[in-house]
């Protein structure tokens, strides 16, 4: 998974072609840390079909809020730079994969 922050978010997500999955997390969010390894496995499984990024919201608060993310965990799906779907709180990896299959 690519680590994104305010310096490369535009490049990696908003200007990217195709499907980009962004895992919004923070070091204090236990459910986020529980979910992330599973998302990382999806990243391997869907290699070439979707790009996976993670964003530490504690260090990039304004960026997260600009993406209308104000709660964790949030998994956002971007297609050609447009946010097309979002899963938030009580997210399971099964939900993420189902949404991914819808969008791929």
């Amino acid at each position: 998974m690519i680590e994104v922050d305010k310096t490369n978010f535009e490049e990696e997500v908003l200007k990217a072609e195709g499907l980009v999955v962004v895992d919004f997390w923070s070091p204090k969010c236990e459910p986020c840390k529980e979910l992330m390894p599973h998302v990382a496995k999806l990243a391997e499984k869907y290699q070439g079909k979707a790009k996976f990024c993670k964003l530490d919201t504690a260090a990039n608060r304004r960026l997260a809020i600009s993406q209308k993310v104000l709660g964790l965990p949030t998994i956002a799906f971007y297609k050609n730079g447009e946010k097309v779907a979002e899963l938030t709180q009580e997210v399971t990896v099964e939900d993420v994969e189902a949404k991914l299959n819808e969008l791929v």
């Binding site: 923070s26 204090k28 236990e30 459910p31 809020i65 709660g71």
Partner: peptide, 9 residues
């Protein structure tokens, strides 16, 4: 519903 998750926003 989770202050530790979201407080720093």
């Amino acid at each position: 519903y989770c202050a530790t998750c979201d407080a720093d926003f």
